[in-house]
């Protein structure tokens, strides 16, 4: 028994040393990447100082033309949206950006799946893992899962899954798309396979809302401080059952925050020319939607470009 316990302890010590060494190497590697998804994340967390910030999922990243917003509003703009993510990552990123500068306008694109419904919130912590030591990030992990603080003791866990990609990018320094001010236009053609005709009829159902995500929504509004906050549901080819957005509407109403729902806007619903698939606008659709949004923003907010006129 003694031999067994000693050997197990020795094994853990060796693993601990490997883990520490790996952490030192990977922290160095990750910190120096300036291209690809990791480069974009580094830029958002360490350098973004823009006035207008867009957050949300892939729908945010592909739907909001940051350059267009910048040119029209006379304010600098950056799109911080990321695939498969929602309010939890948005809150973390805004927290890190605010260490440097408070934005003037904060837009969060709502995806019910990532911002409202109950699912595994652990998956939204992926991009925040290498930032665990930054101020306030630890609390996000604690809110999502109390056991995360123990898991984060492992450096390998922090860099889990992404290490290979990061090493390849670091070593090859091959340039890859980081977007135009974070905006990632979809230039590929309409893909008929990606439209599920069975989903055309909007079905109402009972939704299981996640109180934690709603808590993060409130914290996000608090964190934005004096900035003008907007929650937006961008267009969907399918349209949507708007009752699924009821909790966010209620929060917006209570907190005096603007909520805009374009998901059933007849200009976009079932219009293939604007979409790549059922949930993502192509570049043409994104430009059209950004133009529509600029009109609303101009009517709602007093901008420096307008005051100059």
């Amino acid at each position: 028994m003694k031999k067994f316990v000693l050997k197990i302890t020795l094994l853990f010590v060796i693993i601990g040393i490997c883990d520490f060494t790996f952490g030192v190497v990977m922290n160095h590697v990750v910190g120096r990447i300036s291209i690809g998804s990791q480069g974009r994340d580094n830029f958002i967390c360490n350098q973004v100082k823009e006035d207008v910030l867009v957050f949300g999922s892939s729908r945010a990243a592909h739907h909001y033309n940051a350059q267009m917003l910048e040119d029209s509003l006379g304010m600098t703009c950056y799109n911080c949206g990321d695939d498969g993510n929602g309010i939890i990552l948005s809150y973390g990123r805004l927290l890190m950006i605010k260490e440097r500068k408070a934005p003037k306008i904060v837009i969060h694109d709502i995806s019910a799946q990532f911002d409202l419904f109950k699912n595994d919130n652990g998956k939204y912590l992926g991009w925040l893992k290498p930032r665990y030591e930054r101020e306030g990030i630890r609390d996000i992990f604690d809110m999502v899962d109390k056991t995360e603080k123990y898991k984060m003791l492992s450096q390998m866990y922090r860099h889990n899954s992404k290490f290979l990609q990061n090493l390849v990018v670091y070593l090859s320094s091959k340039s890859s798309d980081t977007g135009i001010k974070g905006y990632r236009p979809i230039n590929s053609a309409y893909d008929p396979m990606k439209f599920n005709k069975n989903k055309m009829a909007i079905t109402k159902r009972k939704y299981d809302f996640d109180p934690l995500k709603l808590e993060f929504t409130n914290k996000f509004i608090d964190l934005a401080g004096d900035a003008k906050v907007l929650f937006i549901v961008s267009p969907m080819w399918y349209g949507s059952d708007s009752t699924q957005f009821a909790p966010i509407k209620e929060i917006c109403h209570r907190r005096g925050v603007l909520f805009l729902d374009y998901s059933n806007n007849p200009k976009y619903v079932h219009k293939e020319e604007y979409f790549k698939d059922g949930y993502h606008l192509n570049a043409k659709g994104a430009d059209e939607f950004t133009k529509d949004l600029i009109k609303v923003l101009k009517s709602q907010i007093d901008f420096p470009s307008q005051s100059k006129q």
Binding site: L11, F22, D120, G122, K151, M156, N160
Partner: peptide
């Protein structure tokens, strides 16, 4: 033997899905 154990643990920690 030990190299195999360590490699396997490292692979699990680095590439496993921990949901």
């Amino acid at each position: 033997r030990w190299l195999s154990y360590i490699s396997l643990i490292v692979i699990i920690l680095l590439t496993g899905v921990f949901s």
